[in-house]
C-alpha cells in the first residue's frame, strides 16, 4: 500500500504527522509539505491536522521514552532544514520508542547517523553564536543583538544569554526570520514587533567609542608574521561578518 502523508510544512505539523503514523501503525512512503511533490500513484493520502499542544506532547513523550539527548537531537533537527529528512526523523522517533536511551549508541546506523549529523550542524551553529552574537547599546539602555543564523536557533540560544547577561535589558533579533527574543530583567519572551523597540531609539552615545576600542584591540592582537586568512574564514564564515563590528 503506497501511503502519502501531507502536512503543513511547520515543525508542529511534522511532529503531529509522526504521532499519526505511530498511532495508526502506518508506514508512509512520503511525508510532504505544501508545494512538495507527492507520490505518483498514492493509494491513500492522509491529511495531517496541526495541533500545537499535541506537538508538545510528542516531544515530551519521546523524552520520557528515549532520553533527553534524543529529544534534543530531534528538536535540533527540526530547527534546521528538515524538509528532506522527514522519514528519517520518523524512523529515529520509532527507534527511540523501541530502544529507549540506547538509540544514540547506534552510531553506525544510517538513520541515527543522519539525525546526529543534522543535529550536530544545528548544535554547532548554536555554539558559534554563543561567541559571535554582538550586542549594541541603544539610547534607552536596550542592548540589541541582530544576527542572521542559518538555522532557527533563537530559542535554543536565549537561555545561555539569560544566564550571563541577566542584569541588563536585551533583545536578540533574528533578522532573517524576523523573530526576536527579549529579556527585560525578569522575563524571557518572544517579541512579535521588534521594530517597535528600535523606533526612535538610535545607538547610545558611548557605543561608537566602545566599538572603536574593540576594533583597535582586534587589529592589535593580530600577528602579521602568522597571517592565515583562510583559517580565519573557515572558523568564522563570511556570511556571519555583517553584524560583527570588528569586521565591517
Amino acid at each position: 500500500m503506497e501511503l502519502e502523508y501531507r502536512y503543513d510544512g511547520s515543525t508542529d505539523g511534522l511532529l503531529c504527522a509522526m504521532a499519526d503514523a505511530i498511532k495508526r501503525k502506518e508506514r508512509p512512503k512520503i511525508m510532504a509539505g505544501p508545494g512538495e511533490a507527492g507520490l505518483l500513484f498514492a493509494d491513500r493520502i492522509h491529511q495531517v491536522q496541526t495541533d500545537e499542544a499535541r506537538a508538545d506532547e510528542v516531544i515530551t513523550y519521546f523524552q520520557k521514552k528515549a532520553s533527553k539527548e534524543a529529544a534534543r537531537n530531534l528538536l535540533y533537527c527540526l530547527a534546521g532544514p528538515f524538509c528532506s529528512m522527514e522519514l528519517e526523523l520518523l524512523a529515529y522517533y520509532r527507534m527511540g520508542l523501541k530502544w529507549g536511551r540506547g538509540v544514540d549508541r547506534h552510531h553506525a546506523d544510517p538513520v541515527v547517523h543522519a539525525v546526529h549529523q543534522a543535529a550536530r550542524n544545528v548544535g554547532r551553529e548554536i555554539h558559534r553564536f554563543k561567541g559571535l552574537l554582538r550586542f549594541r547599546k541603544m539610547q534607552d539602555g536596550l542592548y540589541w543583538a541582530p544576527f542572521e543564523p542559518d538555522h532557527d536557533i533563537i530559542s535554543a540560544l536565549a537561555p545561555h544569554f539569560r544566564a550571563r547577561l541577566s542584569d541588563q535589558h536585551w533583545m536578540m533579533h533574528d533578522m532573517r526570520r524576523h523573530r526576536a527574543v527579549v529579556w527585560d530583567g525578569k522575563r524571557l519572551y518572544a517579541e512579535l514587533e521588534p521594530e517597535k523597540l528600535l523606533k526612535n531609539n538610535p545607538v547610545a552615545e558611548e557605543e561608537e567609542a566602545m566599538q572603536q576600542l574593540w576594533k583597535t584591540f582586534f587589529s592589535s592582537v593580530t600577528i602579521e608574521g602568522r597571517k592565515n586568512s583562510k583559517l580565519q574564514a573557515r572558523c568564522m564564515p563570511l556570511r556571519y561578518w555583517r553584524w560583527l563590528p570588528e569586521l565591517v
Binding site: V221, T222, I223, R226, S229, K230, C235, M236, E246
Partner: peptide, 8 residues
Amino acid sequence: HSWTPDGR
C-alpha cells in the same frame, strides 16, 4: 568570540 586574520 572572534578570529583574527592570523587564524587565532
